[in-house]
């Protein structure tokens, strides 16, 4: 199963990278979204995937799925969600201020004088 999931992880990260390298601020948002998918899946792979009973003592029985990556991913998802919301607002402000979604317009003023 690892090979399949690793391939999936690779595809997710590839797509995310592709989006992040675009000029459009909207595509940047999609890139951020995809990035969190890839991350979640990759960490999830670090548990033992052959043991897949729900880690709930009353309902399931051993071998449980590894609960630690699950807890880590939960934390990461929520943090990522906060980031996404923030990025959304940032993108809106970007569009509001610069009236463009072209990220290439963000040139920094570093003139050499003289």
């Amino acid at each position: 199963m690892n090979f399949v999931l690793a391939l999936t992880v690779g595809v997710l990260f590839g797509v995310s990278t592709y989006f992040l390298l675009k000029r459009s601020v909207v595509k940047l948002l999609l890139g951020v979204l995809m990035l969190s998918y890839g991350t979640e899946l990759l960490i999830f792979m670090m548990g033992d995937l052959s043991e897949r009973n729900m880690p709930i003592l009353e309902l399931g029985e051993e071998p449980f799925a590894d609960p630690i990556p699950q807890a880590l991913i939960l934390t990461a998802i929520v943090i990522g969600f906060g980031f996404t919301a923030f990025t959304l607002m940032l993108a809106y402000r970007f569009y509001f201020d610069l009236r463009t979604e072209d990220l290439d317009q963000m040139v920094e003023e570093t003139e050499v004088h003289g």
Partner: peptide, 19 residues
């Protein structure tokens, strides 16, 4: 906290206007 945060953000997003 989760409820309050998400709703606060939604309110902002729902209320700001299209430039």
């Amino acid at each position: 906290t989760v409820v309050a945060v998400i709703i606060s953000i939604t309110r902002v997003l729902a209320n700001v206007k299209n430039p």
